[in-house]
């Protein structure tokens, strides 16, 4: 009896394998198109995973990953409770805080923009408005941060336009150096991000709004709904799946504060509020040549990011029908 079941299972597996093979062969063009992506992912996302071993080693470039001495969790120990702890936990805290601020202040703006765009009825005007809002996205971080630093600079010899404006308004004193002051780093960082990305990020929400059936709006109008009620009862529910997916993705990236902008804007005076995990990894691992500690910090960041995205996806699935997987 048992032998019979085994044979049946074996036959089923063979059939399944045959079925897959036939499917692949018959649709080989599609799989061929998929191949470059698989290779790309393999080479750039999975093969480098072996490099994570650096976090558990006393890495020396000449010995390579495999031959360097294995040190277990010593690098993690140094980060969490050893000599690197003050810097590491500062970067950890800043990463969360900046992400949180970015989420609170940065996340709603593209949604509002998308709603505004959808309410502009004249296509020409909407096109121009949208294009202008997208433009900063296509400028490099170096250009954007260069502009920000110039506009906010308040030095002995020259003063930036915005800095001078704030001085004239009495918001800051003549001696206040905005970009040297840790207190101002986060607002500047968040506002720069909003300026650069809000327009471009609104595209996905705008597309979601455009996909909502006009019949729903008409039905609400027949029922006597006003504009705000349209947004509340039609637009938002219609965007909900997109919103949730974007939230899940955003939470997954909570620990991935764009290091380019931080590196270009921060300095030693503002480390206290500006240094994030990615800049810590860059400064210690690459600039300081301590690759093992850098890799350990990077891995720590990745693991927490992974946990966050899984957690957010789980919660999303539990409380709504939308989830990434």
């Amino acid at each position: 009896m048992a032998e019979h079941r085994y044979e049946e299972k074996n036959d089923a597996e063979q059939n399944r394998f045959l079925k897959y093979t036939v499917t692949i062969l018959s649709d080989y063009r599609l799989y061929l198109l998929l191949l470059p992506i698989i290779i790309w992912y393999g080479l750039w996302f999975y093969k480098p995973l072996a490099g994570l071993l650096i976090a558990f080693k006393n890495y020396q470039p000449n010995l390579g990953v495999w031959e360097s001495d294995f040190v277990g969790f010593a690098n993690f120990g140094s980060l969490v409770s050893g000599t690197w702890a003050p810097q590491f936990w500062r970067a950890f805290r800043n990463t969360f805080v900046i992400s949180l601020y970015g989420f609170i202040f940065g996340f709603p703006i593209p949604i509002l923009l998308a709603i505004f765009f959808s309410e502009i009825t004249r296509n020409g005007l909407r096109g121009i408005t949208q294009t202008f809002s997208y433009l900063p996205h296509f400028l490099s971080e170096v250009t954007i941060t260069g502009l920000v630093l110039t506009l906010l600079y308040n030095g002995e010899v020259t003063t930036g336009v915005i800095a001078q404006f704030l001085i004239n308004l009495g918001v800051i004193s003549e001696t206040t150096k905005i970009m040297q002051n840790a207190e101002y780093f986060r607002p500047v960082f968040i506002m720069t991000g909003i300026w650069k990305e809000a327009g471009y990020s609104s595209i996905v929400y705008f597309a979601a709004i455009m996909a909502i059936s006009p019949v729903l709006y008409e039905a609400l109008k027949v029922d006597g709904g006003n504009k705000l009620q349209e947004i509340r009862f039609v637009t938002f529910p219609g965007m909900a799946p997109t919103l949730i997916i974007m939230i899940v993705l955003r939470i997954g990236n909570m620990l991935s504060v764009g290091y380019e902008r931080v590196i270009l804007l921060y300095n030693a005076n503002t480390y206290e509020t500006a240094d994030v995990l990615s800049t810590f990894v860059f400064r210690i691992g690459l600039e300081g040549g301590n690759q093992s500690i850098g890799a350990a910090a990077g891995m720590f960041e990745a693991l927490i990011g992974f946990a966050l995205v899984v957690g957010a996806n789980f919660i999303s699935r539990e409380i709504s029908d939308s989830s990434l997987w």
């Binding site: 290779i39 080479l43 093969k47 480098p48 072996a50 490099g51 470039p61 000449n62 010995l63 390579g64 990953v65 495999w66 031959e67």
Partner: peptide, 13 residues
């Protein structure tokens, strides 16, 4: 090319 030269040179001595 990617396997031989472009991939992380530090990964494998």
């Amino acid at each position: 090319t990617a396997c031989g030269g472009v991939s992380d040179p530090e990964a494998e001595p």
